[in-house]
């Protein structure tokens, strides 16, 4: 019960503090699920992130469902999904009610210009941390570079990038495996 409660509040915090959707969620996820509770590893978060790109629905809800399922099965998934959605739900209802009454938008615009710089720095910081575990080999670095270039300069769907990267991973794995077996055979 305590675990479910912790899952719920962790994802409420993640939902409330993520400005800018699925990608910007990574720093908050790292903070809550790795540092605060030790629920996941960097590798697991990256796996969830990549798979979330290919599954239907909102990416943030996908990632929350993955973490929730790992911790407490379907109940965990449900709690995490509801938790991450709840803050936006409440905020938008308030916005819908108050929208006409907000007059001074310029102050908010300045604040959000500042927040965007903070978000850019946060994402950059989180990439540095992820790359320590995910970019150990030359091949992985090349796949990463390819994904950056394709995402920035083309409209290619993330699904294609994820599927191709997965296939490259499998082929490299098979190649390494065969070399190992041949190496052992010639060695003996």
């Amino acid at each position: 019960m305590k675990l479910l409660w912790n899952i719920f509040w962790a994802f409420v915090r993640i939902g409330a503090l993520t400005f800018g959707g699925g990608y910007a969620m990574m720093p908050m996820l790292q903070k809550e699920t790795i540092e605060r509770y030790g629920w996941c590893t960097q590798e697991e978060l990256l796996d969830y992130f990549s798979l979330s790109q290919c599954l239907p629905g909102i990416i943030a809800v996908n990632m929350s469902t993955f973490v929730g399922t790992k911790l407490a099965g379907s109940t965990g998934a449900f709690i995490a999904g509801i938790g991450v959605t709840a803050p936006s739900f409440i905020i938008i209802i308030l916005v819908a009610i108050l929208l006409q009454q907000v007059t001074d938008l310029s102050l908010m615009n300045h604040a959000f210009a500042g927040i965007r710089i903070g978000v850019a720095a946060l994402i950059f910081h989180s990439v540095l941390r992820l790359s320590k575990s995910s970019l150990k080999t030359r091949i992985a670095q090349l796949i990463c570079l390819g994904a950056v270039l394709l995402s920035v300069f083309t409209d290619l769907s993330p699904i294609v990038i994820v599927v191709v990267a997965g296939l490259i991973g499998v082929m490299i794995g098979m190649y390494n495996n065969r070399n190992n077996i041949e190496g052992e055979a010639s060695g003996s």
Binding site: Y23, A24, M26, E43, L46, D47, F49, S50, L51, Q53, I123, S126, V127, L130, S131, S133, S134, L135, T137, I139, A140, Q141, I143, C144, L145, G146, A147, V148, S151, V152, P158, I161, V162, V164, A165, G166, L167, I168, G169, V170, I172, G173, M174
Partner: peptide, 17 residues
């Protein structure tokens, strides 16, 4: 093996974002 590729691509897509 597939996940090794996925993690690299995930890091790349977050960088792009």
């Amino acid at each position: 093996a597939a996940l090794v590729g996925l993690r690299a691509a995930g890091t790349g897509m977050i960088t792009a974002a």
